[in-house]
Design a protein around this nucleic acid. Structure first.
Lengths: 133, 133
DNA sequence: GCTTGACCTTCCCATCATTGGAAGGCCCAG
DNA sequence: CTGGGCCTTCCAATGATGGGAAGGTCAAGC
């Protein structure tokens, strides 16, 4: 069994050592076994879990949802409908935020388009912010 | 001069009383004049500033950028190019985040589409997270 | 004038996920 | 046996906001 210190596990999983400790502290990860000197050690299974977490985070899942996904991963009796529900709820959140930011961007782009961007003070962007309709 | 307490100013501007105090604490707003009893009071000009801030926040500007925009608003010798540069930097940030989230959404939507969502455990979403390529 | 209730004040804490740093201990190569 | 690279824990900060406690102020009604 190849055993890794937290630094090696971090490098191998893409999760920083700081975060690995934090995930353990909040209960997302079980306490890692320690060497005599108190060092945490991680085996291949642990690395697999860390990569799972990393992937879930990369897809924008919160740590809370990531914990749920981990639970479902481990649960051989899971229903795929539970996983799908989590994913679709997250998709809906993403869509809502994207829509919100797109609206901001559209407004700003429209204002910036009409701004000369020269040495003069006149600026439709400032005018909009100031409420000069 | 109509003078408002912080609650009235909050209602009139859409910025919560908590946030008005916070903006003052971090220097985004100058210290408001106080009544004998220590209550903050806000005049029409202050309300205008608060609405400006509110609008900038609604467009997604950070408090730091909002401070810059306020400075430019007050500066009669501003160059509209400075305002435009701030806006375009923010547009670029928004675009970057939107792209990032869109990529997440596309991936998730693709995975969810192939998930049966029934009582069985088989699930392409979990498989992806687990790194089963 | 006094009470009552709505409002104000400051101060501290929580969120979410992550990073930074300080002080001190462990481990291995030279 | 020493140096330096890794590890440990603990504390603090980020950004923008909300929540709440303890206590002071104000205005209306009696």
């Amino acid at each position: 069994m190849s055993m890794n210190t937290i630094g090696a596990a971090a490098k191998a999983s893409g999760v920083s050592a700081k975060m690995i400790r934090y995930y353990e502290a909040i209960g997302l990860l079980p306490p890692a076994p320690r060497s005599e000197g108190g060092y945490r050690h991680y085996g291949p299974t642990d690395l697999h879990v860390l990569r799972f977490i990393r992937r879930a985070r990369d897809l924008g899942f919160s740590l809370e949802n990531t914990a749920q996904l981990l639970r479902l991963w481990r649960d051989r009796d899971r229903s795929s409908s539970e996983v799908k529900a989590l994913a679709e709820a997250h998709i809906a959140e993403l869509r809502a935020k994207i829509d919100e930011m797109s609206a901001m961007m559209r407004t700003l782009a429209h204002l910036a388009e009409h701004c000369h961007g020269d040495n003069r003070p006149d600026c439709p962007i400032i005018d909009d912010l100031a409420g000069c309709h």
